[in-house]
Every structure is written in structure tokens, then in C-alpha cells.
């Protein structure tokens, strides 16, 4: 005899539970965790390096670098900036998940850190579905990608707590209708805080860094 039994469970519930454990570990250590997501080439590593330069006198930062291949290019750049960095090689997987982050956390001196920046794998689809347990999801959109991205990747734009629009120095050279872009963002994520900036020229980086510093201070007094 066949019986229907109710389940009503989010499909990635196992990942969600592990993400909660990651959050508890970060909270216990007083670390503010930030998950940075973007397409490949949008400027994730550049933004992290800019953020380190802006905040290193005020906060102790650690970085987790997610990469699909065993190249340490990004982690090397961060380590060269003098910050503890751990690389997660996803072995071709298109996103980081809570299990991978849980495996990386013990390699970092969490108790001594104020801010942990996680660089997700470059991808606008898969990372949106996997909570890591960080306190803040940040999406970097870059001007040359085009103004239609909120319309094409709604799940990614839905779940972020801050949006960075990088490469604004290229606005005079590419087709990018800021009003159209912002309208898409507003429909999916009303009122989300947005930082137009350029990692190349440094324009706008100070505003982002000051905001992030204030958010991090809510977890551990600096």
C-alpha cells in the first residue's frame, strides 16, 4: 500500500545545517564572515586586495580562496599582502559549500581575526544556492558584464546583503544602462546597499571599506 508522507524540507537542508555550524564557530571566535561572489573576472581578488589595503591597519583579516583548479595564484596574492590565506580547491566544482568552508576554518587563526573574507568560485548560478554560514553575502557585478545580469541571474541578486558595481571607470566605454541595471536589482532585492567603485583607480573603495568595517565591528569590538 502506498502512503504519501509530508516532508516540506528545503532541498539543500544538509548544507544549511552545516552552514549554521560554521556561523556558530565564527560567532564563538568573534569573526565577521563575508562571502564574496561574482562571475569570473568581475574583480573578486582585486576587491579583496583593495579591502585588505584599506582595512589592515584597523582589522585583522583572513581570507579563504575558493578555486576550481589547484592553482594558488589568488591565494599567493593575498598571502603576499601579509594576510593568513587558505585555499580550497573544489576539484572542478562550481561553488563552495558549507562542508568545504568547515574544512578550511581550522587552518586559520580565527581567534585572532576580526574579519574573514571568503572568495567563492567565479559563477553567478551555483554559489547562490549554498549558504556558507557567513554573516554577509556580497555580489560583485562589473560594468563590462552588461546591465542585464539581475534579469538573467535573479537567484544570485536575491540573496545578497551588499552589491558592488566594479569597473565604473569603464562606464564611458561600454554599453551599460545604470538605471536599467538598478531597476532589476531593486525588484529582486529592494534597498540593498550598493557600492559603485573601481578597483583599478580606487574610486569608491573607501566607502565600501568604511561600511564593511562598521559591520564587522558589530561582531567584535575593534
Amino acid at each position: 500500500m502506498t502512503t504519501n508522507i509530508p516532508v516540506v524540507e528545503r532541498i539543500l537542508s544538509a548544507n544549511d545545517r552545516l552552514a549554521e555550524q560554521n556561523r556558530a564557530r565564527l560567532d564563538a571566535a568573534g569573526v565577521f564572515g563575508v562571502n564574496i561572489m561574482a562571475s569570473p573576472g568581475a574583480g573578486k581578488t582585486s576587491l579583496i586586495l583593495r579591502t585588505i589595503a584599506a582595512l589592515q591597519l584597523h582589522l585583522r583579516l583572513g581570507v579563504v580562496e575558493g578555486d576550481t583548479a589547484p592553482v594558488t595564484l589568488d591565494a599567493d596574492k593575498v598571502a603576499a599582502a601579509g594576510m593568513p590565506a587558505v585555499q580550497i580547491n573544489t576539484g572542478g566544482d562550481c561553488h563552495l559549500d558549507a562542508v568545504m568552508l568547515a574544512g578550511a576554518l581550522p587552518a586559520l587563526p580565527l581567534e585572532t581575526l576580526h574579519l574573514l573574507i571568503v572568495e567563492n568560485v567565479g559563477n553567478l548560478i551555483c554559489p547562490a544556492a549554498f549558504n556558507l554560514g557567513t554573516h554577509l553575502n556580497v555580489l560583485i557585478a562589473s560594468v563590462p558584464e552588461g546591465d542585464d545580469k539581475p534579469y538573467k541571474y535573479p537567484a544570485m541578486y536575491r540573496g545578497v546583503g551588499a552589491l558592488i558595481i566594479n569597473k565604473i571607470d569603464l562606464l564611458p566605454y561600454v554599453e551599460f544602462n545604470m538605471d536599467y541595471f538598478r531597476r532589476g536589482v531593486e525588484m529582486l532585492n529592494p534597498g540593498v546597499v550598493t557600492f559603485p567603485l573601481s578597483c583599478r583607480t580606487g574610486e569608491g573603495v573607501a566607502e565600501w571599506a568604511a561600511w564593511l568595517r562598521a559591520r564587522a565591528a558589530q561582531v567584535k569590538a575593534v
Partner: peptide, 21 residues
């Protein structure tokens, strides 16, 4: 207006299963 609220479309769940006892 572009000031909107999403009513549905975010769903991502397993609602129920059929089993044989």
C-alpha cells in the same frame, strides 16, 4: 513601478514522498 515584492518563485523544497510500508 519597480518597487515590488516577490510573492512566489523562490521555492526549492521536497514537499512529500510516496512510500510503501
Amino acid at each position: 513601478s519597480a518597487r515590488v515584492r516577490i510573492v512566489s518563485g523562490d521555492e526549492f523544497r521536497l514537499e512529500s514522498i510516496d512510500v510503501e510500508k
